[in-house]
Design a protein around this nucleic acid. Structure first.
Lengths: 198, 198
DNA sequence: ACAGTTCTCTACCATTTGGTAGAGAACTGT
DNA sequence: ACAGTTCTCTACCAAATGGTAGAGAACTGT
């Protein structure tokens, strides 16, 4: 999460935010360059093309999420529901502070298949482990019996959807103040808990 | 859902699909015109600007969803969980056949606030009713007690997220064949049921 | 002091973008 | 037959886009 200092890192950070917020297509190199306070050609020195910049941003984001999740898992208690709660809370903080993080992952579906495939490869080990783990817990009767892969996708969709769609929340009258955030996190955790309880 | 026949309707249909799939910014008027088989200026005859086209598409989409949901509600049984299942199933069919539908709603957050506000107004009555209804059912002890507005948003996020992110599903090894679709719908309904059961 | 690398810049370019101007079909009602 | 409206077209345009070419700082190690 640390905003690093080199020109390259600054570009990466800024591009992450902008791509995540507005979508890859909607953000121009000029715009990124201007916000970083650098000439556009400086971007093209660090990244040979916009495509390469996009891919770097996605790879870094996937990596960052993977690290956060891994850490949360290692530190988490053994009970599966507690563990899920820990992971959700760990992801929730950076996701809300920087909605672009999860929004970016969503941008994957709009990229050329080879690119999205490469990014998916970054996440796959994590996902596979999650599925295997869920299957185990289901067998042990500690999670609601169901299709583990789809349930992983559903949980992801719920967390990502709610963290990246402030509009949807505004329509129901929610506001992004501290109290609202706490309320949201509490409900999200309760929702998932209830969805996954045997 | 009916693909209507006039030039205007053809433009609307095609634009809906393209905007929903690739995002508003990523789709050019030239592209839409070409796919409809008409000159770009014909689009600009029917819609004064791209912005106006976007807004028309969004309004029509919101309207269409509202109609589908209303119909499902009217035809649904009285038990709240059955009713939720009916609505989800009603939305699931068009959403999967045309992912653009829900994808479009997500595009709202990337539009100028006045535009998204106007589209939100189309959906608000529906949402308000959903919240009020949920609150009632919670009071009656037929749904899990919680913040009704946030739960509405969470349910929406789950359905929309899963229906618009084929990438996420691909990562868990899911495929979009008939069996996969049925499996997905079944799990989605079970997930929501479990999440909302008292 | 100097050569080499690293980094950022100005100047430019071909293409694509949303949009304008205005002409000409094709269908009205009379 | 004719005038008016509805609809679609060709021909442009200014601005913005991703990207190239190449010069000049600024920092290396010697």
């Amino acid at each position: 999460m640390a905003r690093r200092s080199g020109t390259r890192d600054q570009i990466l950070d800024r591009a992450t935010d902008l791509f995540g917020r507005w979508g890859v297509e909607a953000v121009s190199l000029d715009q990124i360059a201007q916000e970083v306070g650098v000439a556009k050609q400086t971007l093209l020195y660090w990244f040979a093309s916009k495509d390469e910049l996009v891919e770097s941003v996605l790879a870094a984001t996937a990596e960052e999420l993977a690290v956060v999740v891994e850490a949360a898992i290692r530190a988490a208690p053994d009970d599966p529901l507690d563990r899920i709660e820990a992971v959700v809370k760990a992801v929730f903080r950076p996701a809300v502070r920087r909605p672009a993080l999860l929004g970016l992952i969503r941008e994957m579906s709009r990229l050329p298949p080879e690119t999205s495939e490469r990014v998916a490869d970054h996440l796959r080990p994590l996902v596979e482990r999650a599925i295997a783990w869920m299957r185990n817990e289901m067998d042990a009767g500690r999670l609601r019996r169901s299709d583990p892969d789809i349930v992983v996708a559903l949980s992801y969709a719920t967390v990502t959807g709610i963290a990246t769609e402030p509009e949807a929340l505004r329509v129901v009258g929610w506001t992004a103040d501290t109290a609202g955030l706490r309320r949201l996190r509490t409900e999200l955790v309760a929702f998932l808990r209830s969805a996954l309880t045997p």
